[in-house]
Design a protein around this nucleic acid. Structure first.
Length: 400
RNA sequence: GGGUAGUUAGCGAAGUGGCCAAACGCAUCUGACUGUAAAUCAGACGACUCCGUCUUCGGGGGUUCGAAUCCCUCACUGCCCA
Protein backbone atom coordinates (compact mmCIF):
# COMPACT_ATOMS: atom_id res chain seq x y z
CA UNK A 1 0.00 0.00 0.00
CA UNK A 2 2.85 2.31 0.76
CA UNK A 3 4.71 1.39 -2.36
CA UNK A 4 4.67 3.07 -5.70
CA UNK A 5 6.33 0.24 -7.55
CA UNK A 6 5.46 -3.44 -7.87
CA UNK A 7 7.86 -5.71 -9.65
CA UNK A 8 5.83 -8.22 -11.63
CA UNK A 9 8.48 -10.23 -13.36
CA UNK A 10 12.04 -10.23 -14.54
CA UNK A 11 13.89 -11.69 -17.49
CA UNK A 12 17.60 -11.52 -16.92
CA UNK A 13 18.04 -8.07 -15.45
CA UNK A 14 15.09 -6.69 -17.40
CA UNK A 15 12.10 -5.86 -15.22
CA UNK A 16 8.39 -5.56 -15.82
CA UNK A 17 6.29 -3.94 -13.16
CA UNK A 18 3.70 -1.38 -12.25
CA UNK A 19 4.29 2.21 -11.25
CA UNK A 20 1.49 3.60 -9.13
CA UNK A 21 0.78 7.31 -9.07
CA UNK A 22 -2.03 9.43 -7.73
CA UNK A 23 -3.36 9.55 -11.26
CA UNK A 24 -3.34 5.87 -11.99
CA UNK A 25 -1.06 2.97 -12.63
CA UNK A 26 1.42 2.57 -15.42
CA UNK A 27 2.95 -0.64 -16.70
CA UNK A 28 6.74 -0.58 -16.77
CA UNK A 29 8.97 -0.31 -18.65
CA UNK A 30 7.43 2.70 -20.35
CA UNK A 31 8.35 5.70 -22.46
CA UNK A 32 7.15 9.22 -21.72
CA UNK A 33 6.04 11.50 -24.51
CA UNK A 34 7.92 14.75 -24.23
CA UNK A 35 5.79 17.90 -24.15
CA UNK A 36 8.37 20.40 -22.95
CA UNK A 37 6.18 23.47 -23.28
CA UNK A 38 2.98 21.64 -22.44
CA UNK A 39 2.68 20.49 -26.02
CA UNK A 40 4.03 17.73 -28.15
CA UNK A 41 5.18 19.75 -31.13
CA UNK A 42 3.93 19.40 -34.70
CA UNK A 43 0.30 19.87 -33.77
CA UNK A 44 -0.04 16.62 -31.87
CA UNK A 45 -2.69 16.90 -29.16
CA UNK A 46 -3.98 14.89 -26.25
CA UNK A 47 -6.49 13.10 -28.47
CA UNK A 48 -3.57 11.82 -30.49
CA UNK A 49 -1.72 10.64 -27.40
CA UNK A 50 -4.93 8.96 -26.33
CA UNK A 51 -5.20 7.19 -29.67
CA UNK A 52 -1.71 5.77 -29.45
CA UNK A 53 -2.07 4.92 -25.78
CA UNK A 54 0.78 7.08 -24.60
CA UNK A 55 1.03 6.31 -20.89
CA UNK A 56 2.79 9.33 -19.40
CA UNK A 57 3.54 12.90 -20.43
CA UNK A 58 6.63 14.91 -19.52
CA UNK A 59 6.83 18.70 -19.30
CA UNK A 60 9.63 21.05 -18.40
CA UNK A 61 9.95 23.36 -15.42
CA UNK A 62 12.28 25.89 -16.99
CA UNK A 63 10.23 26.41 -20.14
CA UNK A 64 6.88 26.62 -18.36
CA UNK A 65 8.36 28.94 -15.77
CA UNK A 66 9.30 31.34 -18.56
CA UNK A 67 5.98 31.00 -20.32
CA UNK A 68 3.26 31.05 -19.26
CA UNK A 69 4.65 30.97 -15.72
CA UNK A 70 3.70 28.51 -12.98
CA UNK A 71 1.38 31.03 -11.35
CA UNK A 72 -0.84 31.07 -14.39
CA UNK A 73 -0.77 27.30 -14.78
CA UNK A 74 -1.74 26.95 -11.12
CA UNK A 75 -4.49 29.48 -11.56
CA UNK A 76 -5.77 27.48 -14.53
CA UNK A 77 -6.04 24.42 -12.32
CA UNK A 78 -2.62 22.87 -12.87
CA UNK A 79 -1.01 21.32 -15.91
CA UNK A 80 -3.47 18.44 -16.21
CA UNK A 81 -6.43 20.74 -16.36
CA UNK A 82 -4.57 23.30 -18.46
CA UNK A 83 -3.60 20.72 -21.07
CA UNK A 84 -6.69 18.59 -20.68
CA UNK A 85 -4.44 15.66 -19.87
CA UNK A 86 -5.59 12.97 -17.49
CA UNK A 87 -2.48 10.85 -17.79
CA UNK A 88 0.17 10.72 -15.12
CA UNK A 89 2.63 13.51 -15.72
CA UNK A 90 6.24 14.12 -14.85
CA UNK A 91 8.02 17.45 -14.86
CA UNK A 92 11.73 17.76 -15.30
CA UNK A 93 13.37 20.10 -12.82
CA UNK A 94 15.19 22.36 -15.24
CA UNK A 95 18.39 20.53 -14.43
CA UNK A 96 18.92 19.56 -18.02
CA UNK A 97 18.93 23.22 -19.00
CA UNK A 98 22.00 23.51 -16.79
CA UNK A 99 23.56 21.43 -19.51
CA UNK A 100 21.83 22.64 -22.65
CA UNK A 101 21.43 26.41 -22.25
CA UNK A 102 24.58 28.23 -23.24
CA UNK A 103 24.24 31.37 -21.19
CA UNK A 104 24.13 30.44 -17.54
CA UNK A 105 26.17 30.68 -14.39
CA UNK A 106 26.28 27.80 -11.94
CA UNK A 107 27.09 28.23 -8.26
CA UNK A 108 26.65 25.98 -5.26
CA UNK A 109 23.48 27.87 -4.45
CA UNK A 110 21.78 27.49 -7.81
CA UNK A 111 21.87 28.62 -11.41
CA UNK A 112 21.46 31.92 -13.20
CA UNK A 113 20.00 31.45 -16.64
CA UNK A 114 19.63 34.03 -19.32
CA UNK A 115 16.21 33.36 -20.71
CA UNK A 116 16.53 32.04 -24.23
CA UNK A 117 13.40 34.03 -25.06
CA UNK A 118 14.28 37.56 -24.02
CA UNK A 119 17.63 37.34 -22.27
CA UNK A 120 16.15 38.15 -18.88
CA UNK A 121 18.09 36.73 -15.97
CA UNK A 122 16.35 33.84 -14.26
CA UNK A 123 17.34 32.29 -10.96
CA UNK A 124 16.58 28.64 -10.36
CA UNK A 125 17.68 26.61 -7.38
CA UNK A 126 16.36 23.49 -5.71
CA UNK A 127 13.66 25.27 -3.70
CA UNK A 128 12.54 27.31 -6.67
CA UNK A 129 12.43 24.29 -8.97
CA UNK A 130 10.39 22.25 -6.52
CA UNK A 131 8.06 25.14 -5.88
CA UNK A 132 7.50 25.64 -9.59
CA UNK A 133 6.90 21.94 -10.05
CA UNK A 134 4.42 21.87 -7.18
CA UNK A 135 2.50 24.67 -8.82
CA UNK A 136 2.59 22.98 -12.22
CA UNK A 137 1.10 20.00 -10.46
CA UNK A 138 2.74 16.95 -12.03
CA UNK A 139 2.43 13.55 -10.40
CA UNK A 140 6.14 12.88 -10.54
CA UNK A 141 8.64 15.66 -10.09
CA UNK A 142 12.41 15.70 -10.31
CA UNK A 143 15.03 16.93 -7.91
CA UNK A 144 17.08 19.84 -9.20
CA UNK A 145 20.45 18.58 -10.41
CA UNK A 146 23.52 19.67 -12.29
CA UNK A 147 23.85 17.80 -15.54
CA UNK A 148 27.43 18.25 -16.75
CA UNK A 149 28.65 17.33 -20.23
CA UNK A 150 30.13 13.85 -20.35
CA UNK A 151 33.09 15.27 -22.24
CA UNK A 152 34.90 18.58 -22.07
CA UNK A 153 33.17 21.08 -24.29
CA UNK A 154 36.08 23.11 -25.60
CA UNK A 155 39.18 21.06 -25.08
CA UNK A 156 42.31 22.84 -26.20
CA UNK A 157 44.05 21.63 -29.32
CA UNK A 158 45.82 18.41 -28.45
CA UNK A 159 49.60 18.59 -28.78
CA UNK A 160 50.96 16.96 -31.91
CA UNK A 161 53.97 15.58 -30.14
CA UNK A 162 53.04 12.01 -29.07
CA UNK A 163 55.19 12.29 -25.98
CA UNK A 164 53.20 15.26 -24.76
CA UNK A 165 49.89 13.81 -25.88
CA UNK A 166 49.73 11.23 -23.14
CA UNK A 167 50.17 13.78 -20.40
CA UNK A 168 47.74 16.11 -22.09
CA UNK A 169 45.08 13.44 -22.23
CA UNK A 170 45.57 12.67 -18.57
CA UNK A 171 45.23 16.34 -17.65
CA UNK A 172 42.05 16.65 -19.71
CA UNK A 173 40.65 13.57 -18.05
CA UNK A 174 41.44 14.96 -14.61
CA UNK A 175 39.87 18.27 -15.51
CA UNK A 176 36.69 16.48 -16.59
CA UNK A 177 36.78 14.31 -13.49
CA UNK A 178 36.84 17.28 -11.15
CA UNK A 179 34.13 19.03 -13.09
CA UNK A 180 31.88 16.02 -12.79
CA UNK A 181 32.81 15.49 -9.16
CA UNK A 182 31.66 19.02 -8.45
CA UNK A 183 28.41 18.28 -10.26
CA UNK A 184 27.95 15.13 -8.16
CA UNK A 185 28.51 17.07 -4.94
CA UNK A 186 26.12 19.82 -5.97
CA UNK A 187 23.54 17.33 -7.13
CA UNK A 188 23.59 15.65 -3.73
CA UNK A 189 23.33 18.96 -1.89
CA UNK A 190 20.51 20.07 -4.16
CA UNK A 191 18.81 16.68 -3.76
CA UNK A 192 18.64 17.19 0.00
CA UNK A 193 17.27 20.68 -0.49
CA UNK A 194 14.76 19.33 -3.01
CA UNK A 195 13.57 16.75 -0.49
CA UNK A 196 13.23 19.39 2.20
CA UNK A 197 11.32 21.70 -0.09
CA UNK A 198 9.05 18.84 -1.08
CA UNK A 199 8.53 17.72 2.51
CA UNK A 200 7.66 21.27 3.48
CA UNK A 201 4.57 21.05 1.34
CA UNK A 202 3.70 17.34 1.29
CA UNK A 203 3.76 14.84 4.11
CA UNK A 204 6.19 12.25 2.84
CA UNK A 205 4.73 9.64 5.12
CA UNK A 206 1.64 9.73 2.96
CA UNK A 207 1.50 6.91 0.43
CA UNK A 208 3.09 7.97 -2.87
CA UNK A 209 -0.25 7.38 -4.53
CA UNK A 210 -1.71 10.28 -2.60
CA UNK A 211 0.87 12.97 -3.33
CA UNK A 212 3.34 13.97 -6.00
CA UNK A 213 6.33 11.68 -6.08
CA UNK A 214 9.83 13.05 -6.01
CA UNK A 215 12.63 11.39 -7.94
CA UNK A 216 16.32 11.78 -7.18
CA UNK A 217 18.97 11.95 -9.88
CA UNK A 218 22.30 10.16 -9.93
CA UNK A 219 25.14 11.90 -11.73
CA UNK A 220 28.79 10.95 -12.17
CA UNK A 221 29.43 10.94 -15.89
CA UNK A 222 31.29 7.89 -17.07
CA UNK A 223 33.43 7.63 -13.94
CA UNK A 224 32.59 4.51 -12.02
CA UNK A 225 33.66 5.81 -8.63
CA UNK A 226 31.74 9.05 -9.04
CA UNK A 227 28.65 7.19 -10.19
CA UNK A 228 28.90 4.92 -7.17
CA UNK A 229 29.42 7.84 -4.85
CA UNK A 230 26.44 9.69 -6.33
CA UNK A 231 24.29 6.59 -6.26
CA UNK A 232 25.12 5.97 -2.62
CA UNK A 233 24.38 9.54 -1.61
CA UNK A 234 21.18 9.90 -3.62
CA UNK A 235 19.69 6.53 -2.77
CA UNK A 236 20.28 7.27 0.91
CA UNK A 237 17.60 9.94 0.60
CA UNK A 238 13.86 9.21 0.79
CA UNK A 239 13.05 9.58 -2.88
CA UNK A 240 10.17 7.77 -4.55
CA UNK A 241 12.24 6.79 -7.52
CA UNK A 242 15.72 7.16 -8.91
CA UNK A 243 16.93 8.53 -12.17
CA UNK A 244 20.21 8.29 -13.98
CA UNK A 245 21.11 11.67 -15.41
CA UNK A 246 24.03 12.95 -17.37
CA UNK A 247 23.96 10.09 -19.84
CA UNK A 248 23.51 10.27 -23.58
CA UNK A 249 25.00 13.74 -23.50
CA UNK A 250 27.81 13.27 -25.96
CA UNK A 251 29.48 10.03 -24.96
CA UNK A 252 29.32 7.00 -27.27
CA UNK A 253 26.43 4.60 -26.63
CA UNK A 254 28.86 1.90 -25.56
CA UNK A 255 30.12 4.16 -22.77
CA UNK A 256 26.57 4.62 -21.56
CA UNK A 257 25.91 0.89 -21.60
CA UNK A 258 29.05 0.42 -19.57
CA UNK A 259 27.80 2.85 -16.92
CA UNK A 260 24.49 1.03 -16.87
CA UNK A 261 26.33 -2.26 -16.46
CA UNK A 262 28.19 -0.82 -13.52
CA UNK A 263 25.38 0.80 -11.61
CA UNK A 264 21.84 0.10 -12.85
CA UNK A 265 21.56 -3.05 -10.78
CA UNK A 266 22.66 -1.17 -7.69
CA UNK A 267 19.64 1.12 -7.85
CA UNK A 268 17.02 0.05 -5.27
CA UNK A 269 15.00 -2.82 -6.69
CA UNK A 270 11.78 -1.70 -5.05
CA UNK A 271 11.73 1.72 -6.67
CA UNK A 272 11.28 2.79 -10.28
CA UNK A 273 14.46 3.44 -12.25
CA UNK A 274 14.43 6.21 -14.79
CA UNK A 275 17.08 6.75 -17.46
CA UNK A 276 16.67 10.38 -18.37
CA UNK A 277 16.68 11.56 -21.94
CA UNK A 278 17.26 8.19 -23.57
CA UNK A 279 17.10 7.31 -26.34
CA UNK A 280 17.18 5.52 -29.67
CA UNK A 281 15.22 2.26 -29.97
CA UNK A 282 18.50 0.38 -29.53
CA UNK A 283 19.34 2.41 -26.42
CA UNK A 284 15.94 1.63 -24.92
CA UNK A 285 16.38 -2.08 -25.49
CA UNK A 286 19.90 -2.10 -24.08
CA UNK A 287 18.79 -0.10 -21.05
CA UNK A 288 15.73 -2.24 -20.35
CA UNK A 289 18.04 -5.23 -20.56
CA UNK A 290 20.02 -3.64 -17.74
CA UNK A 291 17.03 -3.05 -15.51
CA UNK A 292 15.70 0.41 -16.41
CA UNK A 293 11.95 1.07 -16.13
CA UNK A 294 11.31 4.58 -17.42
CA UNK A 295 12.49 6.68 -20.34
CA UNK A 296 11.89 9.91 -22.14
CA UNK A 297 13.53 11.31 -25.21
CA UNK A 298 12.97 13.93 -27.87
CA UNK A 299 14.12 11.52 -30.57
CA UNK A 300 10.80 10.18 -31.81
CA UNK A 301 9.23 13.62 -32.03
CA UNK A 302 12.19 15.63 -33.23
CA UNK A 303 13.37 13.08 -35.73
CA UNK A 304 9.82 12.78 -37.01
CA UNK A 305 9.86 16.50 -37.74
CA UNK A 306 13.24 16.06 -39.38
CA UNK A 307 11.97 13.30 -41.63
CA UNK A 308 13.04 10.08 -39.94
CA UNK A 309 10.43 7.43 -39.24
CA UNK A 310 11.07 4.51 -36.91
CA UNK A 311 9.82 1.11 -37.94
CA UNK A 312 10.33 -2.49 -36.91
CA UNK A 313 12.65 -2.74 -39.90
CA UNK A 314 14.79 0.20 -38.92
CA UNK A 315 14.82 3.89 -39.66
CA UNK A 316 13.27 5.36 -42.77
CA UNK A 317 14.19 8.70 -44.28
CA UNK A 318 10.77 9.46 -45.62
CA UNK A 319 11.79 12.31 -47.91
CA UNK A 320 13.98 10.02 -50.02
CA UNK A 321 12.94 9.78 -53.63
CA UNK A 322 12.61 6.01 -53.40
CA UNK A 323 9.30 6.56 -51.60
CA UNK A 324 7.95 8.93 -54.24
CA UNK A 325 5.36 6.44 -55.40
CA UNK A 326 5.42 3.97 -52.54
CA UNK A 327 2.00 2.61 -51.66
CA UNK A 328 3.33 1.09 -48.44
CA UNK A 329 2.56 2.59 -45.06
CA UNK A 330 5.45 3.39 -42.72
CA UNK A 331 5.08 0.04 -40.97
CA UNK A 332 2.41 -2.53 -41.83
CA UNK A 333 2.55 -4.00 -38.36
CA UNK A 334 1.81 -0.62 -36.79
CA UNK A 335 -1.71 0.05 -35.61
CA UNK A 336 -1.32 3.80 -35.17
CA UNK A 337 -3.79 6.20 -36.79
CA UNK A 338 -1.26 6.91 -39.52
CA UNK A 339 -0.39 3.33 -40.49
CA UNK A 340 -3.66 1.64 -39.56
CA UNK A 341 -2.09 -1.78 -39.97
CA UNK A 342 -1.39 -1.14 -43.63
CA UNK A 343 -4.59 0.67 -44.51
CA UNK A 344 -3.32 4.10 -43.57
CA UNK A 345 -1.42 6.88 -45.27
CA UNK A 346 1.14 5.82 -47.84
CA UNK A 347 4.81 6.63 -47.72
CA UNK A 348 4.30 8.51 -50.98
CA UNK A 349 1.75 10.80 -49.35
CA UNK A 350 3.87 11.32 -46.23
CA UNK A 351 6.89 12.04 -48.39
CA UNK A 352 4.89 14.57 -50.34
CA UNK A 353 3.67 16.28 -47.16
CA UNK A 354 7.20 16.43 -45.80
CA UNK A 355 8.79 17.70 -49.00
CA UNK A 356 6.25 20.50 -49.36
CA UNK A 357 6.68 21.26 -45.66
CA UNK A 358 3.08 20.73 -44.67
CA UNK A 359 2.38 20.68 -40.94
CA UNK A 360 0.30 17.56 -41.43
CA UNK A 361 3.35 15.59 -42.49
CA UNK A 362 5.21 16.39 -39.29
CA UNK A 363 2.11 15.64 -37.30
CA UNK A 364 1.65 12.23 -38.89
CA UNK A 365 5.32 11.39 -38.58
CA UNK A 366 5.30 12.36 -34.91
CA UNK A 367 2.18 10.36 -34.13
CA UNK A 368 3.65 7.32 -35.80
CA UNK A 369 7.06 7.59 -34.14
CA UNK A 370 5.57 8.01 -30.69
CA UNK A 371 3.23 5.10 -31.37
CA UNK A 372 6.22 3.03 -32.44
CA UNK A 373 8.09 3.87 -29.25
CA UNK A 374 5.14 2.91 -27.09
CA UNK A 375 4.69 -0.23 -29.11
CA UNK A 376 8.34 -1.05 -28.58
CA UNK A 377 7.94 -0.63 -24.81
CA UNK A 378 4.77 -2.71 -24.81
CA UNK A 379 6.55 -5.46 -26.70
CA UNK A 380 9.44 -5.40 -24.26
CA UNK A 381 7.01 -5.71 -21.34
CA UNK A 382 5.43 -8.74 -22.95
CA UNK A 383 8.77 -10.33 -23.63
CA UNK A 384 9.88 -9.81 -20.04
CA UNK A 385 6.63 -11.28 -18.74
CA UNK A 386 7.22 -14.28 -21.00
CA UNK A 387 10.82 -14.41 -19.74
CA UNK A 388 11.98 -14.26 -23.31
CA UNK A 389 13.74 -10.93 -23.28
CA UNK A 390 17.26 -11.89 -24.34
CA UNK A 391 16.27 -13.97 -27.37
CA UNK A 392 13.79 -11.33 -28.42
CA UNK A 393 16.38 -8.60 -27.97
CA UNK A 394 18.94 -10.39 -30.10
CA UNK A 395 16.44 -10.78 -32.92
CA UNK A 396 15.06 -7.25 -32.63
CA UNK A 397 18.45 -5.56 -32.67
CA UNK A 398 19.31 -7.12 -36.00
CA UNK A 399 16.54 -5.11 -37.64
CA UNK A 400 16.48 -1.99 -35.51
C1' G B 1 9.55 38.02 -94.11
C1' G B 2 11.57 42.15 -90.64
C1' G B 3 13.04 43.47 -85.73
C1' U B 4 14.35 42.19 -80.92
C1' A B 5 15.65 39.35 -76.51
C1' G B 6 17.63 35.01 -75.27
C1' U B 7 20.19 29.72 -75.22
C1' U B 8 24.92 28.61 -68.44
C1' A B 9 25.65 22.07 -64.81
C1' G B 10 18.75 17.83 -63.11
C1' C B 11 15.53 22.61 -63.01
C1' G B 12 15.46 27.98 -62.19
C1' A B 13 19.06 31.72 -62.29
C1' A B 14 23.90 34.89 -61.57
C1' G B 15 28.32 35.77 -64.16
C1' U B 16 29.59 39.64 -69.70
C1' G B 17 38.03 38.87 -71.17
C1' G B 18 42.07 36.12 -66.34
C1' C B 19 40.63 35.40 -58.97
C1' C B 20 35.10 30.35 -63.20
C1' A B 21 34.25 23.71 -62.64
C1' A B 22 31.27 28.58 -62.70
C1' A B 23 27.42 32.62 -57.13
C1' C B 24 22.53 31.67 -55.33
C1' G B 25 17.78 28.99 -54.96
C1' C B 26 15.18 24.42 -55.81
C1' A B 27 15.56 19.29 -56.42
C1' U B 28 18.66 15.09 -55.12
C1' C B 29 21.85 12.47 -51.67
C1' U B 30 24.50 11.79 -47.01
C1' G B 31 25.40 12.92 -41.93
C1' A B 32 23.88 14.85 -37.19
C1' C B 33 20.04 15.33 -33.56
C1' U B 34 19.29 11.39 -26.88
C1' G B 35 15.77 15.03 -19.12
C1' U B 36 13.67 19.99 -26.93
C1' A B 37 16.91 27.80 -27.37
C1' A B 38 15.89 22.44 -32.74
C1' A B 39 9.23 22.27 -38.34
C1' U B 40 16.79 22.48 -37.04
C1' C B 41 21.93 22.07 -38.41
C1' A B 42 26.24 20.34 -41.35
C1' G B 43 28.24 18.34 -45.85
C1' A B 44 28.12 16.51 -51.08
C1' C B 45 26.16 17.62 -55.73
C1' G B 46 30.61 17.83 -64.27
C1' A B 47 34.13 13.47 -64.76
C1' C B 48 38.19 10.82 -63.12
C1' U B 49 43.47 6.95 -61.54
C1' C B 50 40.02 12.79 -56.68
C1' C B 51 45.29 17.16 -52.01
C1' G B 52 45.94 16.43 -58.83
C1' U B 53 44.18 15.96 -63.78
C1' C B 54 40.60 16.20 -67.63
C1' U B 55 36.00 17.87 -70.29
C1' U B 56 32.08 21.92 -69.78
C1' C B 57 28.57 27.48 -70.15
C1' G B 58 23.27 25.84 -77.68
C1' G B 59 26.64 23.89 -82.50
C1' G B 60 30.78 25.32 -85.58
C1' G B 61 34.63 28.77 -86.70
C1' G B 62 37.63 33.04 -85.29
C1' U B 63 40.27 37.17 -82.20
C1' U B 64 43.52 36.80 -77.80
C1' C B 65 49.12 34.87 -73.90
C1' G B 66 44.10 33.76 -71.97
C1' A B 67 36.90 33.44 -73.69
C1' A B 68 30.86 31.27 -70.43
C1' U B 69 32.28 36.40 -71.35
C1' C B 70 34.57 39.74 -77.84
C1' C B 71 33.66 38.73 -83.45
C1' C B 72 31.42 35.62 -87.54
C1' U B 73 28.10 31.90 -88.67
C1' C B 74 24.38 28.10 -88.01
C1' A B 75 20.42 26.09 -85.02
C1' C B 76 16.60 26.67 -81.69
C1' U B 77 13.24 29.56 -78.28
C1' G B 78 10.36 33.91 -76.53
C1' C B 79 8.28 38.65 -77.71
C1' C B 80 6.96 42.66 -81.27
C1' C B 81 5.84 44.28 -86.37
C1' A B 82 3.99 42.45 -91.16
Amino acid sequence: MNKNFDLKSTSGQARAGVLKTRRGEVQTPFFMSVATRAAIKAGVGMEDLEAIEAPVVLCNTYHLHLKPGEALVEKMGGLHEFMKCDKPMLTDSGGFQVFSIKRKKITDEGVWFNSHIDGKRIWIDAERSIDIQHKLGADMIMAFDECPPSRLQNPMEPPTNPAELKGWKRRQERKLYFKIRTAVERTTAWAKRSIDAHAAKYDLSLPPTQRPQLFGIVQGGCFKDLREQSLKEITALPFDGFALGGLAVGEPSEAMYKVLDEIAEKLPADKPRYLMGVGSPKDLIEAVARGIDMFDCVFPARNARHGTAYTWNGELRITNQEFEASTDVLDVSCGCPVCQNGKGYTRAYLRHLMTVDEELGKRFMTIHNLAFYHDLMRTMREQIMADNFEPWKAAALVKL
